[in-house]
């Protein structure tokens, strides 16, 4: 049924298959070679180098960006470390100031305390001295009164009191 290719273009080679119509082969081969050469020239001169350069450029950009990001990260880490260091320093400084102030205050306090202690001690000593004086004065007075009383009692009893004996007796009693 299909043995009647009566279209205009089919040369009378008898074959029903256009693929086997050898009269068209030179034409196809010629135009194929032209096409291939044209495509090859376009590709190898223009398209492929361009795409290759674009890809290389993109690769470069990506690599650069990654490197830049790496650097920025490193810088951030450095900044963080510096910040931490500064914080530590400031803390140490503050601690030092606190310690210094404390020591200063302590020293002043100590001096004042000593001064106060010394004053108190002096006053105490003075008071003790005064008390001792008063005590001594009182003892003397008691002694004198006791001697006089003893002499009077002895005289009243009709005895003749030896002053030295009385004094010795009173002294002995006072100690006891």
């Amino acid at each position: 049924m299909a043995d009647t290719p009566v279209e205009a273009g089919a040369e009378a080679s008898g074959a029903g298959m256009p693929q086997l119509d050898f009269s068209t082969f030179p034409n196809q081969i010629f135009w194929l070679l032209v096409t291939l050469v044209v495509i090859y020239l376009i590709l190898s001169r223009v398209a492929l180098p361009r795409i290759a350069s674009v890809l290389a450029e993109r690769q470069g950009t990506i690599t650069n960006d990654i490197a830049a990001a790496e650097e920025l990260k490193m810088r951030a880490q450095e900044a963080e470390a510096a910040y931490d260091q500064a914080l530590l320093d400031a803390r140490a400084e503050a601690a030092k100031i606190v310690a210094d102030t404390k020591a200063d205050i302590q020293a002043k306090l100590d001096v004042e305390m000593q001064k106060a202690d010394a004053e108190i001690a002096a006053q105490t000593a003075e008071s003790e001295k005064a008390i001792a004086e008063i005590q001594a004065g009182a003892t003397e007075a008691v002694k004198a009164v006791a001697k006089d009383t003893a002499k009077e009692i002895v005289a009243a009893l009709g005895g003749k009191a030896d002053a030295r004996t009385i004094t010795a007796a009173i002294n002995a009693r006072m100690k006891g």
């Binding site: 299909a2 290719p5 273009g9 089919a10 029903g16 298959m17 119509d21 034409n27």
Partner: peptide, 12 residues
């Protein structure tokens, strides 16, 4: 009418 091979014809 089947002309499955007409499409392959080389024409001026």
């Amino acid at each position: 009418s089947f002309k499955p091979l007409d499409q392959f014809e080389v024409k001026r």
